[in-house]
């Protein structure tokens, strides 16, 4: 097939390659822009949800527990916590495992976790399916669900499913993929392996990356700037005054 449609496929390769580069660019620049906006927006009043740590280091610890353990979610809803933890931990493992497609040589820790990757993919799929079921079957959650909320879950499920097919049923040409990807970063075009499942997987992943900075996936960046979690409790000890509030301050009697 490759021999017959070689010319057409290489145009197609270029489209997929461009899409990937574009998506990564949008993801990186989009997130960087949002991080900049979040960091640069003033926080005129101290609003940590208390009890809160008294020091900045303590607040960093609270944030770390929030990001790594989903501490607040655990207190809110154990089932939702379990599903989210399965999905996010699974996704983290899978992403780490994917580093071997872009790193050369492959560092040993990445090599070491390869067998865990399949488990990670399974956990991710179970978590996603559970989250989707919640959205469809719990009346209150269904009521707050929009098309885009479902779309993100379906997109992630489709990415996971195509990935699992390649891992379990129809192994992709990993070396070919690696050469193709390396070609993109080095501006040395190389053909994409002739594998519809792989192509679908890559295109869906590109879509996910490209929409991330415009969607609720921004939570991955925003959580670090959430003032109720990131601020420490030191309002009596330190005076906090932002520049837009200064003119009011200067009007006061001394």
């Amino acid at each position: 097939m490759g021999a017959v449609f070689g010319g057409v496929m290489s145009f197609f390769d270029a489209v997929v390659g461009t899409l990937l580069v574009f998506a990564v660019g949008v993801l990186v620049l989009g997130l960087a822009n949002k991080v900049w906006v979040y960091a640069a927006t003033p926080a005129p009043l101290r609003i940590p949800t208390t009890p809160a740590p008294l020091t900045r280091l303590g607040a960093a610890g609270r944030l770390a527990r929030e990001v790594l353990l989903f501490e607040s979610l655990f207190r809110a809803d154990k089932v939702l916590w379990a599903l989210s933890a399965l999905f996010h931990a699974g996704l983290a493992l899978v992403l780490l495992r994917h580093l071997r497609y872009v790193l050369n040589p492959v560092p040993w820790p990445i090599e070491a976790i390869q067998p865990l990757g399949v488990l990670g993919a399974g956990a991710m799929m179970v978590g996603l399916a559970g989250l989707l079921a919640r959205r469809l079957f719990l009346p209150s959650v269904r009521m707050i669900t929009r098309a885009t909320d479902l779309a993100v879950l379906v997109l992630l499920l489709a990415i996971g499913a195509t990935g699992l097919v390649m891992t379990l049923a129809a192994p992709a040409d990993i070396m070919g993929l690696k050469i193709f990807l390396a070609g993109l970063w080095r501006f040395a075009p190389a053909p994409l392996p002739d594998d519809p499942v792989l192509v679908l997987h890559l295109v869906l992943a590109a879509v996910l990356m490209a929409v991330a900075p415009f969607s609720k996936l921004l939570h991955m960046a925003g959580v670090f700037f959430s003032p109720t979690r990131a601020q420490c409790d030191n309002a009596r000890e330190r005076r906090h005054l932002v520049s837009w509030a200064r003119p009011l301050d200067d009007l006061r009697p001394r």
Binding site: K34, S72, L73, A76, D77, L80, S84, R134, L138, S140, V141, I144, T145, R146, D149, K216, L218, H219, A221, G222, V223, S226
Partner: peptide
């Protein structure tokens, strides 16, 4: 920006 509509608060 960042609400994911998880419903933990509902």
């Amino acid at each position: 920006d960042i609400c994911v509509k998880c419903g933990a608060c509902h």
